[in-house]
Amino acid sequence: MHLLIIEDEVKMAHYLNKGLSENGFIVDVAADGEDGLYRATANSYDLIVLDVMLPKIDGWSVLISLRKQKKDLPILFLTARDAVSDRVKGLELGADDYLIKPFAFSELLARIRTILRRGHLTSLDIIKIADLEIDSVRHKAIRNGKCIELTPKEFALLFLLARRSGDVVSRTVITEQIWDMNFDSDTNVVDVAIRRLRQKIDDGLQKKLIHTIRGVGYVLEDREKNQC
């Protein structure tokens, strides 16, 4: 997957480049709107990450010109201004998604994956991770051959982590998706919920599947398999 990052702030561009490269993307970086627009039209990218505040040509103009030339090129824009009108403007101009600075890298990664996956979603009726099997139709989870009793919320949480297996899922995403609460909560609801889920999934077993990424969020994956 080939990505273009149009971002003038060197540090930000550098860490985005590093992070995305490590996650298997091929990344190009443009430092201003003019260069960005040129590269985007000259090469074929799978997705563009576009900062709104840019020297020479601002992000909105880049977005408009790109939409005229390449209708289907997915664009995700980054903005420090979180006024609702700004977000609406971006989406109306044809961006596929947006993120407000400061954002967690895991969040960006998840959104990029979601955009790229769009259109060719695989059937997710049954997900298998190591010896864990999740059946989304019958709302059942089986670990090590044993059926695990889960509350509806616990199942939803497990299913969310499993569907994004390998990706770090942030607390914000979890609160949004599981409880439909889109405000940052001061409390540790997510941590408690994960701890309870862990007790049911991982307790007493050698191989742990749910991992905490401190300061970021949680990931469900088979680590031993990945290390091989």
Partner: peptide, 23 residues
């Protein structure tokens, strides 16, 4: 690094709340 990340996310959370108040 992990402890810094904790601190950063708390700062970011505070900023988010302040922005909400400002708005």
């Amino acid at each position: 690094l992990e402890s810094s990340l904790d601190e950063f996310s708390r700062l970011s959370h505070t900023i988010e709340n302040l922005l909400f108040l400002a708005r």
